[in-house]
Design a protein around this nucleic acid. Structure first.
Lengths: 247, 247
DNA sequence: CCGACACTTCGGTCCCCGCCGAAACGTACG
DNA sequence: CGTACGTTTCGGCGGGGACCGAAGTGTCGG
């Protein structure tokens, strides 16, 4: 039957997901650290990332090339700067989800500053477009306790929950198919609210001055006003909301 | 101030997720292929996986060692055989989710058998404990059309949906917090029903003889009886349910 | 127009790891 | 027992890629 391998096979080009290629992008300490840093949803320059990960500028260039080519990052050249950010919310979710499944490794803490920064991160941080950390889990729990969020057959807003969002003016008007997702917290190992509703809630909190972002990091602190608002509106305990001391 | 790095830092052991380590496990073609194969939820022996991925037995041993050590696989030694399977449904979801984000690569098709196998896989296959492929997407769409499943604020069963499951005898009695999740299909790039409800539905279909698994592969075929049942109960079009010819 | 700066390219080193075959080990089966 | 078979260990080979420093390109600011 001679040469067979050039017949019907070519008519149906077979595409299979290249899992190894995607995983390979994240399989390096430096690139993983870059992606984790970019989870703050901001735009970083190449030099910032190089300094943050502790590698030479030339090494950072090579890594960013691969991440951009792989579609994980998007770049924007402005003058002599190379700005990069995560491609989209979907990519961010994938990375955060992967991180939540990853084994925990004891990290080398060099200074008291490091230790404090870590405490702040576990307390409240951004996760691309929504909130993560102890505070996020507490808010999620509070929503559940008040029957605004239910877990039967998957996390969903209850009718009361939808009304509450509208009443608070948080409802995401741009799409009426707002998405409730939950995100597993690495520190808490418990789910917190994510998706479009989680993002709208966080945006709302920032606009009302309930929370502020700490400089150029992922760290978020809850303001005095925020503590009051969250206690009054959701019954979140003040103790949980108090950060690890003021910096 | 001399030696500082051995003070308060040690009191607070800092654990950070080792994203690179987890990704590294999947960053190899052979290991990725093994995990993808294991997505059928079955138990494979080391030799089977070696043959399936086309590597020597000794190479397979090394890979399995790493996957087991990394917690992705669980093993069971029986006599001279080493049986492995994915650690749990959570791990399977993570891999499938990662696969759905991975870039598609044109695969090398060697034979007509390969091409046909691929068509069968895209039509209907197992995804650990539930169904994936064109048929799964069609069923999910049908559930949505009949308002048994809603997408507002995240995928959830409607009250009608819960009643329908109970009426059909599909309800998962083991836990009343059954979980609705959706899984992005690589072939369709559209979501299909997963989670506990998806699993219960698939189990039900197997028990009623609506579908049968094809040998030791992930391939699933819809029986004549299944076609009728799905059309009558959910209004799924027969055309979609017909497989790519009988083998 | 000249220095400072952000980034890139290039050359070179080093190490990790995926692969194999050969031999050893242990179990199953006649 | 002895043979067959599934799996493991070991040695060795080869390639890919992570890293750096030095030199080059382009841009901004004085």
């Amino acid at each position: 039957m001679g040469d067979v391998h050039a017949t019907a096979a070519d008519h149906h080009p077979i595409d299979r997901p290249d899992l190894a290629a995607l995983a390979g992008l994240l399989a390096d300490r430096t690139r993983a650290a870059m992606c984790l840093a970019l989870l703050d949803g901001r735009t970083w320059t190449a030099t910032e990332l190089a300094r943050h990960t502790g590698v030479a500028a030339s090494t950072a260039t090579a890594h960013l090339n691969r991440l951009v080519a792989g579609g994980l990052l998007e770049e924007e050249r402005r003058g002599r700067h190379r700005h990069v950010r995560l491609a989209d919310a979907d990519t961010a979710e994938m990375i955060e989800s992967l991180a939540s499944h990853a084994p925990l490794r004891p990290a080398h803490v060099r200074s008291l500053r490091d230790a404090h920064r870590h405490r702040s991160l576990t307390h409240a941080r951004t996760c691309f477009d929504h909130l993560a950390g102890t505070v996020a889990v507490a808010i999620t729990d509070a929503l559940s306790d008040r029957h605004l969020l239910t877990w039967d057959y998957g996390p969903t807003l209850t009718p009361e929950g939808k009304d509450w969002l509208r009443h608070e003016g948080i409802a995401d008007h741009r799409d009426n198919r707002a998405h409730v997702r939950t995100c597993l917290d690495w520190t808490e190992r418990r789910p917190h609210l994510a998706g479009a509703v989680g993002a709208a809630l966080f945006r709302h909190a920032l606009e009302r001055g309930w929370m502020v972002r700490r400089g150029t990091t992922r760290i978020v602190t809850v303001t005095e006003e925020g503590r009051r608002a969250l206690r009054e509106r959701l019954g979140v305990e003040e103790g949980v909301l108090a950060g690890p001391g003021d910096v």
